[in-house]
Design a binder for these strands. Structure first.
Lengths: 334, 334
DNA sequence: ATGCTGGGATACATCGTTGCAGACGATGGC
DNA sequence: GCCATCGTCTGCAACGATGTATCCCAGCAT
């Protein structure tokens, strides 16, 4: 069997509870006693049993992260940074893939997954604010992304609208007039896709450029969907001189399809994305995109969640944090 | 407070233990009793407390996955598939990033992380077989990748040497004679890089082509290192007509640098990678690479680990599983 | 001396579950 | 009619830690 606190207590000649007190940095312990306990711990190679601690204290020191698919580069990079941020505060991150499935998202919210974690970082994609509110329970919950902007929930996001507007303005400034958008989600308006599309339209309006619905292609946020969307546009005969992928993998799929079809980028068509994943910098041509400040997002969302856990943050209404952004102008849309 | 088994027992008019038996599918329970318990569970909305179960049973239903960096596409895709495979068997996966740091890898092996998991999927990068054997403990451990091939450990890997040989043969068959290799790790010979390099040399030997050490560029397995390696080769004046990136991100970094420098791919230089990450298919030009059968790797490594856990697999020596591979011939090296 | 204060350590109950051993009534063989 | 067996269910202890309440003693004021 493993060494328990009881063994340590016996070895140090103190009570079980004193060992516990030493481990939990209880203030009033004589230095000599503390030393004896620590020596015993070192000698026996004692390691606290986290399961027992969790059962007794009700805390797991784990944060849950719910996202659709860990193999998507944006989520992979985000997860990596979140884990590092959490680790700095002594927490681990347990990841759950929802596949954007409503049932899976609900399960993550109330099932065993929730039980295993002290708080949740949640990227809802297919369920709404009311469904969440009804099942959120009492443990803290921080939303990531902007599918749900609701005063009831804490939210960490970026200035999607502003960023999309700035990026579109950049394309317009480069002389592009017919900017196709791919990856739109027609059903929603408040989600990430909706906000970015809104920013696009604002930029058009500001520049006095017309909005043409024929240029808006729906699609899931995957490389193949980006390629398919561009293929559809090309085949339909709609003219366009730029493509704005609502995220980077869409834009990279589009880029691929354009080049295959013999369309020169950026000469004939400029391409821009959103997210600034590592891959964007090394695409050929390299991809113009928006950097959402992922480090800041990761750091602040963990900080907010931990503030809720510790009770440092007590606001009744949801706290909304917005990170900054930066345009990354590269070869695909100079 | 949450609903406990005790509440269920009272509601159903049975003992605590009977509820436990129902939950654990104990054979000898009268259908009527079982039904009553299940009704009570449904009515009260009871959910088993996993922490308490873990403490009592000594099992967590979590598998540990140790890798260097979740943001690397290969690991992200692998982690995603492993999580899905584990979920199919009722297990969760807890990921730990080691950053290829020896201390972090040792910690994952014996620290709290190990305690939280029933078994480990381990991608060692910086520590050796002896260090692992000395600290492995008694919980099952399955190695991923081939940094460590040792009869003491279970291992799931792919035919690195054969695959690299086949890929190199393909390049040679295409008329390439001076194939640069980037991402070599000169210090090691048994690791992944070493095995792939070995396959490369075997292909050269078989074709009667000379081996030139000047064509071997070391580097970490990242995009920027791939770009830097190619830049170094170009600047040094060494001639080459193909680049074999020991993994895809290296090759993609190399591809990027070649195109920036005005080198035509594949006309002047062919480029090939290894891993077949999603991105390879959508690169421009699309990347010739080796598909390691990641689905199979994920499925079989989880199966092996669970077989060890359940005692279905009892081999004294390590079980070594090799998945198949397929060449994916694409535009970058047709 | 006595009472009070507060630092330092302890005993005991408790978190929610599962393993073990045994109880109980009904059945069946002899 | 007795004992062994079988199916079904139960009680108790235990997993390894923490919270609560309490106790003891030294130091100080009264």
């Amino acid at each position: 069997m493993a060494v328990t606190m009881n063994d340590v207590a016996k070895a140090a000649g103190v009570s079980l509870k004193t060992v516990s007190n030493v481990l939990n940095n209880y203030e009033f312990i004589r230095p000599a006693t503390k030393q004896r306990v620590q020596d015993a711990i070192a000698e026996l190679g004692y390691e606290a049993n986290l399961t027992a601690r969790s059962l007794r204290s009700g805390k797991t020191s784990m944060l849950g992260l719910v996202l659709s698919d860990l193999s998507a580069p944006y989520y992979a990079e985000l997860a990596s940074k979140l884990m590092n941020a959490a680790a700095r505060h002594g927490y681990r991150v347990l990841v759950e893939q929802s596949d954007a499935d409503p049932g899976a998202e609900l399960n993550a919210l109330q099932g065993p997954f929730r039980q295993l974690t002290d708080g949740l970082l949640f990227t809802p994609l297919s369920i709404g604010a009311d469904a969440i509110a009804g099942r959120a329970g009492s443990k803290p919950l921080v939303m990531l992304g902007e599918h749900i902007v609701d005063p009831r929930f804490d939210l960490v996001t970026m200035k999607n609208g502003e960023a999309a507007q700035a990026l579109t303005a950049h394309l317009l400034a480069g002389g592009r007039r017919r900017i196709a958008v791919i990856g739109a989600h027609p059903e929603e308006s408040a989600g990430t896709a909706g906000l970015r599309l809104h920013g696009y339209r604002q930029a058009l309006d500001q520049a006095g450029a017309p909005f043409d619905p024929a240029l808006i292609a729906p699609g899931e946020w995957r490389r193949d969907a980006g390629a398919a969307a561009v293929a559809g546009l090309l085949d339909s005969g709609v003219e366009f001189d730029a493509v704005f992928g609502l995220n980077d993998v869409l834009a990279l799929g589009a880029l691929h399809e354009l080049l295959i079809r013999g369309v020169s980028v950026p000469r004939d068509v400029a391409v821009a994305g959103f997210d600034d994943i590592d891959e964007a910098r090394f695409a050929s041509p390299s991809l113009t995109t928006v950097s959402p400040g992922m480090d800041e997002i990761a750091e602040r969302s963990v900080a907010l969640l931990l503030d809720r856990l510790s009770g440092r943050e007590t606001a009744e209404a949801g706290v909304h944090v917005e990170s900054g952004f930066e345009l990354r102008i590269r070869e695909s849309a100079p």
